[in-house]
Simulated scan of single mutants.
Amino acid sequence: MDSTISDSIDDGNYTYGEVIEPCEMPQLLNIRRFLQVYVHSVICVAGFVGNTLVILTYAFYKRTKSMTDVYLLNVAITDILFVVALPLIIFSEHSGWALGDWSCKFLRGVYSINLYSGTLLLACISLDRYLAIVQARRSFRLRSQALVYSYVSCAAVWLLALGLALPTFIFYQRYKDTEETVTLPDEDDNVSTGPVLEQEYTCFFRFEKNDTARRVKLLVPSTQVALGFCLPLLVMAFCYASVLITLLRAKNFQRHKAVRVVLTVVLVFVVCHLPYNATLLYDVVNMFELYDCHEVERTQLTLVLTESLAYLHCCLNPLLYAFVGVKFRNHFRKILEDAWCLGKRYMGARRTSRVTSEAYLSSRRSEGSSYENATSFTM
Score class of each variant (00 low, 15 high):
Met347Ser: 15
Val355His: 01
Leu342Cys: 07
His331Ser: 10
Asp338Val: 10
Phe328Val: 04
Phe328Trp: 05
Lys344Arg: 15
Val324His: 03
Val324Glu: 00
Arg333Cys: 09
Glu337Gly: 02
Thr352Asp: 12
Thr356His: 09
Gly325Val: 13
Phe323Gly: 02
Thr352Ala: 14
Arg354Cys: 05
Val326Pro: 02
Val355Gln: 02
Arg354Leu: 15
Val355Cys: 01
Trp340Met: 11
Tyr346Ala: 08
Asn330Cys: 08
Lys334Glu: 12
Leu336His: 04
Arg333Lys: 13
Phe323Thr: 02
Arg329Val: 05
Leu336Trp: 10
Met347Trp: 09
Val324Cys: 02
Ile335Gly: 03
Ala349Gln: 10
Glu337Cys: 10
Arg354Ile: 08
Trp340Phe: 08
Leu336Tyr: 04
Gly325Arg: 10
Phe323Asp: 01
Arg351Ala: 14
Thr356Asn: 09
Leu342Lys: 08
Arg345Gln: 12
His331Ile: 02
Arg351Asp: 08
Leu336Lys: 03
Leu342Ala: 12
Asn330Ser: 14
Thr352Asn: 10
Arg345Ser: 03
Arg350Glu: 06
Trp340Ala: 15
Trp340Thr: 13
Thr352Phe: 06
Phe323Glu: 01
Arg351Leu: 14
Phe323Pro: 01
Tyr346Trp: 07
Arg329Leu: 07
Gly348Tyr: 00
Ala339Gln: 04
Met347Leu: 15
Glu337Met: 11
Arg329Tyr: 07
Trp340Leu: 12
Phe328Gly: 01
Ile335Asn: 08
Leu342Pro: 00
Val326Lys: 13
Met347Lys: 14
Phe332Asp: 00
Ile335Glu: 05
Ala339His: 03
Leu342Ile: 04
Lys334Met: 12
Lys334His: 13
Val355Asp: 01
Lys327Gly: 14
Arg350Val: 08
Arg354Tyr: 11
Leu336Glu: 03
His331Phe: 13
Thr356Asp: 07
Ser353Leu: 09
Ile335Pro: 03
Ala339Pro: 01
Phe332Gln: 06
Asp338Arg: 11
Phe328Pro: 00
Glu337Phe: 12
Arg354Pro: 00
Phe328Met: 10
